[in-house]
């Protein structure tokens, strides 16, 4: 419990860190032509959204939402549920994206967006 009170962020600073992370992910997605790197960027973006949800669910002085005698303050369980399922769904969709990347590589011989566009224009 003592850790909870020492562990204090400037009130909005944590949101700003999350936004910086989100923008890094966004930057990777739009600035890089490599499809694998784009998917990594999407993952970074995704994790930042998860963090945003979990951050909003936190109550200062609360504990993990597992009911126990003598504890009255819990963090909000609802964001935890949503993000828990979202992570597993996220990895499944990431796998689908990676599968598409593999097929793109087999069809075009490259995973760089520019090269694919050039090949398309030639054909």
């Amino acid at each position: 419990m003592s850790l909870e009170t020492e562990f204090y962020f400037p009130s909005l600073g944590l949101y700003w860190i999350i936004i910086v992370l989100m923008m890094i992910g966004f930057y990777i997605v739009i600035a890089h032509g490599n499809l694998v790197k784009k998917i990594v960027g999407l993952n970074v973006f995704q994790v930042s959204v998860f963090l945003l949800f979990i951050t909003m669910g936190k109550v200062l002085g609360g504990t993990a939402p597992i009911l126990k005698e003598g504890v009255s303050t819990y963090s909000n369980p609802l964001p935890h549920v949503l993000i828990l399922t979202a992570i597993v769904v996220g990895v499944a969709t990431t796998a689908l994206g990676l599968a598409l990347v593999v097929r793109v590589r087999e069809a075009f011989g490259t995973v760089e967006e520019d090269d694919i566009c050039a090949l398309e224009n030639d054909a």
Binding site: A64, I66, L84, T85, I87, V88, V91
Partner: peptide, 12 residues
């Protein structure tokens, strides 16, 4: 049901 865990984590 009693601690952290459940179908999603267990499956993974």
């Amino acid at each position: 049901d009693f601690g952290p865990g459940g179908g999603f984590q267990a499956g993974v």
